[in-house]
Write a protein that binds this DNA or RNA. Sequence first.
DNA 1: GTCAATAGTTTGTCCTGACATATTTACGTT
DNA 2: AACGTAAATATGTCAGGACAAACTATTGAC
Lengths: 255, 255
Amino acid sequence: MWPLREVAVNQPAPPIQVDRNSPVPLYFQVAQHLEQQIESGELATGSRLENEIDLADQLGLSRPTMRRAIQYLVDRGLLVRKRGVGTQVVHTKVRRQVELTSLYEDLVKAGRDPRTRVLSFGREPAPATLVLEFGLAEGTEVYAFERLRYADGEPLALMRNYVPSGLMDLTPEDLERHGLYNLLRAAGVNLRIARQSIGARTATAAEARALGETRGASLLTMERVAYDDHGRVVEHGKHIYRASRYSFDLTLTGW
Amino acid sequence: MWPLREVAVNQPAPPIQVDRNSPVPLYFQVAQHLEQQIESGELATGSRLENEIDLADQLGLSRPTMRRAIQYLVDRGLLVRKRGVGTQVVHTKVRRQVELTSLYEDLVKAGRDPRTRVLSFGREPAPATLVLEFGLAEGTEVYAFERLRYADGEPLALMRNYVPSGLMDLTPEDLERHGLYNLLRAAGVNLRIARQSIGARTATAAEARALGETRGASLLTMERVAYDDHGRVVEHGKHIYRASRYSFDLTLTGW
DNA sequence: GTCAATAGTTTGTCCTGACATATTTACGTT
DNA sequence: AACGTAAATATGTCAGGACAAACTATTGAC
């Protein structure tokens, strides 16, 4: 299971060079180089790295700096370490992080030509459920809006959202042109964490009509609250998706 | 947004004590103490910590150790740091990590009295889809089994799974008594990452009968592949849940 | 030949010390 | 009074060294 020594160790000296005058931290330069070598296959899947001390010597760095570079890649799941044994490149299949993105960005990435129609838009006091369930300050004014999201010209999702109006200025035009999360980021909001609940139910007549489904079709439902890095509620959404055209893909990591 | 200094700084000396004879690393002891103080409200939401150097002095630790303790909590989202400013406790609502758990554990935690009935169990060569889609080595023998999961005496989910037989010994009795992920962990498998796809569809007649739903009811579907820390495929599952009784709750973190 | 003790390798933890950089606060000049 | 500059403050990065603990492989005893 753990490869033999002679077989596993790669090139005697990985040709990494660090630039001490760069503003980029040394540990990060090393981490990037290593990541690139892993990604390019230069450091093969399953192969063992040389030990920290030798690597540090070869690059003219201290061991703590080398360790930090390696730790960074361990945290991102590219390397595995075992005390008394060594550091090994993880199988390629096990990459990628959990990301906090929105439907709009996902669709753009997938080249699915997203369009948005704003069905309703307004400002109002935050509804009681938001205050009670998610700890929004009482009396906060929020934008409330409803959007229909299309992909490749076909309706895909019906989205109802609340956003505290103190965070940013928002217009229906903004929402037609950009994804909500991009707008939040552009306003300087640092999304840090979001709680989602994903379920399913059958469509009501009105929902079926809006989404172009038949009555009684299965829908994916998603309710989400997002917080910024100070713990303020930044967004609340209740979305429904056509199950025939959408599914949630996610990557979970455990210790 | 960032609280004033005089207001924010808490007790002059948090009464933390570390045990240098404990096998638990010092940085971890400190992190746990701090976490407990935050959880108990002793360190209030939004309050600022003293600076690293003073804290280290007060505990008789070096700055790197203190930093590591703080960094641990920053990574877990309990603290926020800003260079030149300080370290602040994040709002209470923004806790909790993504966890790699199984339905069984979740139900136990919720006190829902989980039961499992094994509908079928066998060993067979890995099906072609597993080899092609998820990179399982060709010719691998796998356990293939089907389980019906009950909560509080009511059927909740129908689960079809594959597990490479080389990983562990598995019997239907094991599966009736424990969750799959607990069994894997007990066999020394380190779950590291899982890819899930969550969708919805209407129940077939057979599925509806097994789950006690009416025909045409909405079901939540989940397909998952889990990998261990060496990148080996450890488990594949295709599950269906009664949408009327189950939803996926998840927490996403972004940078 | 088998098993237990031992030596060697590698990562884990912790220390002291130094300088860099971002941010806020205070001061002094205009 | 307003503005730009400097000082104070806090975290970020890096070095070099020491010892501990886990794991592997070898050696030695029976």
